Simulated assay, not measured.
Amino acid sequence: MRDPYWLRWLEDSERFVPETRSCRPEVIDSWLVDDGETRAFHRHVARFTAACAQLRPDRVGTFLDAAQEWIPSAGRWFPRAEMASPEGNPQLFLWLRPAPPRGETVRLWVSPSPDGRARPRVKGPDLTSLAQLRDAAVQAGADEAVLLSRNGHVLEGSTTSLLWWRGDVLCGPPETAAILPSVTRAEVLALATERGVEFRPELATPAELAGADVWTLNALHGIRPVAAWADSPFTTAEPGRAEQWHHLLAERNDHETGQ
C-alpha cells in the first residue's frame, strides 16, 4: 500500500472512510512518520488544533490521534491533515502519502514580489499561491522560494522556515514577524537552549545573508543548509554544522520518546 489515498473522518463514529479527495482545504498540517516515529507530534497537534479553532473547535485531537494509529508502522510516510468545508460543513480529512527522500541541501530563489499571503500564520489558506512560488523557484533552477516582507526582509521559504548563523549565535526572524509557527523551528530553538546557544531575533535582507550559514527547516527534511542562491552572487558557508544539528535533533526526539 504505497500509493497516496484520502480518508474522511466520521466524527460520530470516530472512524475513517475512503474518500476520492477533499475539497479545497482551509487548514492543513503535515508531519513525517519514519517507522512509526514522529518528531514533536504534540506541536503539530497544537498548531493544527489552534488553526481549526474557529471552524472546527471540538474533537480535533481525537482525529489526529486516530490518524497516527492509521499510518503504517513501517516505512517513511508524510501524511497531511486537512480541515475543509464542503457545502459549508467543516470536516476533517487525512491524506496518507509516502514520504519522498530527504534532501541534503537547498538552492534558494528570492521572490521578486513582497509576501502577499492572506493568512501567513495559518497553514492552508495560501497553499495555491505558495505552490506557484515554489514552481517559479524550480523554473529558476532552485528548490525553494524565499518570501520577503515589504521592507525587503527575509521571512521564510514557501515550504520552509529559515534560520542563519552569525558566528556562534543562531539568528532568524522574530516570532512577531509574518511567519508560520514552524514545528521544526521550535524544536531547533529548544535544542539551542539546551546546548547553551544564543538565539537572536534578526531582520535581514538576502544581501545581508551573503556568506552566512543559512538553514531551511521543515518536518519532511529536518535541517538542510543552503548551498546556493539562484540568480545571485551570494556565497554560502560550509554545511557541516547543519548535518550535525540534524542528527542532534533526531537524538533529542529519540530521548523524548524513550526510543
Rank of each mutant, 00 (worst) to 15 (best):
Glu14Lys: 14
Ala190Arg: 14
Val110Glu: 01
Glu82Phe: 07
Gly124Tyr: 06
Gly141Trp: 12
Arg185Thr: 05
Arg43Asn: 06
Ala84Gln: 04
Ala136His: 06
Pro4Tyr: 13
Pro18Tyr: 12
Leu133Thr: 00
Thr235Gly: 15
Val45Pro: 00
Trp9Val: 06
Gly211His: 07
Ala51Thr: 02
Thr257Val: 09
His44Ile: 08
Asp126Leu: 10
Val146Asp: 04
Asp115Pro: 01
Tyr5Gln: 07
Thr235Ile: 02
Pro72Tyr: 13
Ala46Leu: 10
Trp164Gln: 03
Thr176Ala: 15
Trp9Met: 07
Phe199Met: 04
Gly124Met: 12
Pro25Cys: 14
Arg76Phe: 05
Leu249Pro: 01
Gly124Ile: 09
His153Leu: 07
Pro25Met: 14
Leu108Thr: 01
Pro72Trp: 15
Leu163Thr: 01
Leu92Lys: 03
Gly124Thr: 02
Ala204Gln: 05
Glu37Tyr: 11
Gln54His: 11
Arg185Leu: 09
Gly75Ser: 09
Ala53Val: 01
Asn253Met: 14
Arg117Thr: 01
Pro72Phe: 15
Asp58Leu: 15
Arg185Asn: 07
Ala227His: 02
Leu127Cys: 02
Cys23Gly: 13
Gly116Lys: 03
Ser182Ile: 04
Ala237Gly: 08
Arg39Met: 14
Ala51Lys: 01
Ser129Met: 13
Gln91Trp: 01
Pro98Thr: 05
Pro201Arg: 12
Asp135Met: 13
Ala250Trp: 14
Asp143Thr: 03
Gly157Val: 09
Thr105Ala: 15
Pro100Leu: 13
Val197Met: 06
Leu64Lys: 05
Arg195Gln: 13
Gly222Trp: 08
Asp135Thr: 04
Val226Tyr: 07
Leu130Asp: 00
Glu69Ala: 15
Pro233Cys: 12
Tyr5Glu: 06
Arg24Val: 10
Leu191Thr: 02
Ala186Thr: 02
Val17Thr: 10
Glu37Gln: 14
Ile28Phe: 08
Asp143Gly: 06
Trp9Ser: 02
Gln139Gly: 03
Leu94Ile: 04
Phe63Met: 10
Arg200Met: 14
Ala145Ile: 06
Gln91Met: 11
Glu19Thr: 01
Arg2His: 13
Glu26Ala: 05
Leu170Trp: 09
His255Asn: 11
Phe199Ala: 07
Asp213Ser: 14
Ser111Glu: 13
Ser129Leu: 14
Ser111Ile: 02
Ala66Ile: 10
Leu7Glu: 05
Phe63Tyr: 10
Phe234Leu: 15
Gly36Pro: 04
Ala210Leu: 02
Ala136Thr: 06
Gly141Cys: 08
Tyr5Thr: 03
Pro57Ile: 10
Pro201Met: 12
Gly172Leu: 11
Ala40Val: 06
Ser113Met: 13
Thr20Asn: 03
Glu194Ala: 15
Arg59Thr: 04
Leu189Pro: 00
Arg56Asp: 00
Glu144Cys: 03
Trp229Phe: 07
Leu203Ala: 09
Val33Phe: 08
Asp231Lys: 13
Cys171Pro: 00
Val17Lys: 07
Val154Asp: 03
Thr184Ala: 05
Leu92Glu: 00
